[in-house]
Design a protein around this nucleic acid. Sequence first.
RNA 1: GCCCUCGUAGCUCAGCGGAUAGAGCAGCCGCCUUCUAAGCGGUUGGUCGUAGGUUCGAUUCCUACCGAGGGCGCCA
Length: 542
Amino acid sequence: MADAVGEALADALERSVRTGAIAAPDGAADIVVEKPKDPSHGDVATNLALRLARHAGRPPLEIAEALREHLVLGEIIESAEVAGPGFINMRVHPAWLAAQLAPVIGAGERWGDVDLANGRSVQVEFVSANPTGPVTLGATRGAAVGDALANVLDAAGYRVEKEYYVNDAGSRMQTFFESCAWYYRTMCGIDAPPPDELYPAAERAAELLLAEHGDALRDLPIDQLGEHGVVAQLAEIRRDLEQLGVHFDSWFHEQSLFDSGAVEDMLRRLRDAGCVVERDGAVWFAATAVGLDKDEVLVRSNGMPTYFTSDLAYHLDKLEKRAFDRAVDVVGADHQGHLPRMFGALRVLGIAPSRLDIVITQLITVGGAKMKKAAGHYVTLREILDQVGADAIRFFLISRGTGSTIDFDLDLAVKAGNENPVFYVQMAHARCAGVFRQAQADGVPTGSPDLSFLGTDESPLIRLLLDLPEVVRSVAQDLEPHRLTFYAQEVAAAWHRYYHDHRIVDATAPALSTARLHLAAAVRVTLARTLRLMGLSAPERM
RNA sequence: GCCCUCGUAGCUCAGCGGAUAGAGCAGCCGCCUUCUAAGCGGUUGGUCGUAGGUUCGAUUCCUACCGAGGGCGCCA
């Protein structure tokens, strides 16, 4: 809709300039068409005159008036008026709006697609929690956000791959091995002192081993026992995420970067670039040499590379070796520390920083208390999955901007009745399905609608449906999936209201019913797509 | 001390430089013989943390300050 109106405005601008009514703008005019918050300001509005005023050296109102006179009214724009400081408020013809329903229905599952990608690919990496314990609520936020973003980027035309980066290397694994082995052997009745550093989350892996193998593994060496624990825990992580409806295309193991020599290659290139110094027996990335505030350790004095080092090799692998055009990392706020140095190092390695976007999700508290996985204070995905359900969890976790901290109120989530907007949206979809069931029962035809039955009562709802491509564009551009939840609620509210005020299926007025079913079909397509983009189901009945 | 995020209605939060700042929940008043009341309508409720700056126009951008959370390890 905005595109069609924008073209008409561009046309009016050109005509105004040609007739000398207003001076030519310098450069291409950036025509912004938006929906006014106040419905009395029309269906669409533009601030074009306000923007042109500066270069034209004339009051915005005069320019707006000139533009309005040159605007062609007719098929699309029904009326236009100048208002406020220089806005042009326009009303879109209801017949034109009604005619837009068929393309929506025709687009079906692909309604809302836009092309922002120009054939580019993007890899979205998320969750990526250590395989040392169950999926926490915090990691679940990353799962919900990352999966929704991947869906939206797909809708925006990108070739998308979703990846889980398995941190199965590094010194934490040894701690996990020892903890897992101790828990397991304790469960087998072996009395031994706990390791110096005990990792409480490792208890889960021990439980899984006990359930699967009984005490058959009790005499295995710690490392072998630990490896079994990693495999079992990773399998459970995968199961839990699948139950949430999150599926990954690829599971990339950190360890493979060491096995393939990718870490060493990366270090050699940093060294060749003159960005590596040795100090205190360790090897450092000389971040201060490229203008950053502090250096970062690449290889410890004990010879072990740090997480930072493998992370650099990992990003080089995706952006250079696997050659994704873009990469999006969804990470928790506790991971943002080394980001400036990572961008700095990637630049040294020849990777343009613009190819990598980091989405930082803020932390989640439960009942106001923060969670510390290392201390054993956390809520897991599997605990809440049974109580709350995947759809409600996902909707809630993407319904806030990624920059906001979320307090997860478990009691409230379990209640989940009218507190929970996910049911409101899904109910709207179920009602769409319901009217088609009714139509079939009453023998009301659903094809070839007479669009003249659709007028100003339907216009606000149709206008909202036509916003979906713009919502997709906005979410893909800013990587803020919470806008989907607000859009979904708006569409649901408009449909619930319409449904309440208008009988859709009426066997005594078949032509009217057919026209309204045409509208219902477009609502259904729009709600189903929006739900799917969020990773939620679109139920036929509730 | 330095870096990042946040501060908007009683609560939880939208608001991608525009007009009289919005929604849900909570509160109050109404609506089921009708395609799902998991719904609809009405109503109460704001010094947009503070002070400056940029702009025709600032909740939005910039600076400083105040407050909350996070990060500043040869952990990941």
